[in-house]
């Protein structure tokens, strides 16, 4: 059974005013448990609005959101529970940090869940470890940390609620390459250990290509596609046409294909491209070198 499902989900902002705008338009979607999903789309494509429906921050104008097969709005009082089960990390989450210590800030979510101190402590320690924060940092004020560390504290704050589904809105925005790789690799490791469902919104196809099993593309309030990563990159030209950037390496292989060098595969990461090229070169050359 799908862990998250939307049925004809529609959301319209400022109904009845001159600014009325449909941000999500009849979206049908099924996300299976344990998947790592990359979410893409322009600013204003509706992706941010869409993800805010998954944890009940926004209520659909029409249509449904199902979590574990249950309509999350069936009982309004349950909505806070839904937020614990579907953790949402906003863009630039370090700006929501407010406690005096890193420990307390990570504990804010679990504490709101009404857990006991022992369980809170276990979770804080575990997530801090998962996201690569050293234990001695927990006693420090979060405001003394570097930008990348603060971001990880904020992410840990949501992870510590141990949500079934974790959604991250551009977790690497504004970071340098080292900070970006660190966060992505920690999230990946967390995913592999927990086997939970993760959705990552990103503008960088190159980042998404590196980890996502599936890719969801929003365009002009509609679901453009939701499919296996390889299949989505198979439509690289269409994706370029709606103005999204495909990885540089994909562009190279598209061009090669046009020039008559077709490898019959969609290429979207450098290691894959290397292996593919070497295999073809060696395959033809026979032994070892090229």
């Amino acid at each position: 059974m799908a862990i998250l499902e939307t049925q004809q989900l529609t959301y319209t902002y400022s109904i009845g005013s001159p600014f009325e705008k449909t941000a999500v338009d009849h979206v049908d979607l099924k996300i299976e448990e344990g998947e790592m999903v990359g979410v893409m789309g322009h600013t204003g494509s509706g992706k941010s609005t869409l993800i805010q429906h998954f944890n009940g921050l926004l209520r659909p104008t029409s249509g449904k959101v199902l979590l574990d097969g249950q309509d999350i709005w069936a009982d309004k009082k349950r909505i806070r529970d839904v937020r614990f089960q579907v953790g949402l990390v906003f863009q630039y989450p370090e700006y929501q940090i407010f406690e005096e210590t890193v420990f307390k800030d990570i504990a804010f979510g679990p504490r709101n869940m009404g857990l006991d101190e022992k369980e809170i402590k276990r979770r804080v320690l575990e997530t801090a470890h998962d996201i690569g924060l050293k234990e001695e940092l927990l006693k420090r004020s979060p405001f003394e940390l570097s930008g990348g560390q603060k971001r990880r504290v904020a992410i840990a704050g949501v992870m510590a609620m141990e949500p079934k589904v974790l959604i991250l809105d551009e977790p690497t925005a504004g970071l340098d390459p080292a900070g970006r790789d660190k966060i992505l690799s920690h999230i990946k490791a967390y995913h592999e250990r927990k086997k939970n469902t993760i959705l990552i919104v990103s503008h960088s196809m190159e980042d998404i290509a590196g980890f996502a099993d599936k890719i969801l593309v929003m365009n002009k309030a509609k679901l453009f596609c939701y499919d296996d990563t390889e299949k989505v990159f198979g439509r690289a030209e269409e994706i370029s046409a709606i103005g999204l950037d495909v990885p540089q390496i994909t562009k190279v292989f598209l061009e090669l294909k046009k020039q008559g060098l077709d490898f019959g595969k969609e290429v979207y990461t450098v290691p894959y491209a290397r292996d593919l090229l070497l295999r073809h070169l060696q395959g033809k050359a026979g032994e070892g070198q090229c």
């Binding site: 340098d176 540089q248 190279v252 450098v270 290397r274 090229l277 070497l278 090229c290």
Partner: peptide, 21 residues
């Protein structure tokens, strides 16, 4: 230093390492 190179540069470098000209 902790920076990236363009993907195409990285690919070329990987291929060189594997012995390609």
């Amino acid at each position: 230093i902790g920076l990236d190179v363009p993907q195409v540069t990285e690919l070329a470098w990987e291929l060189r390492k594997a012995g390609c000209d």
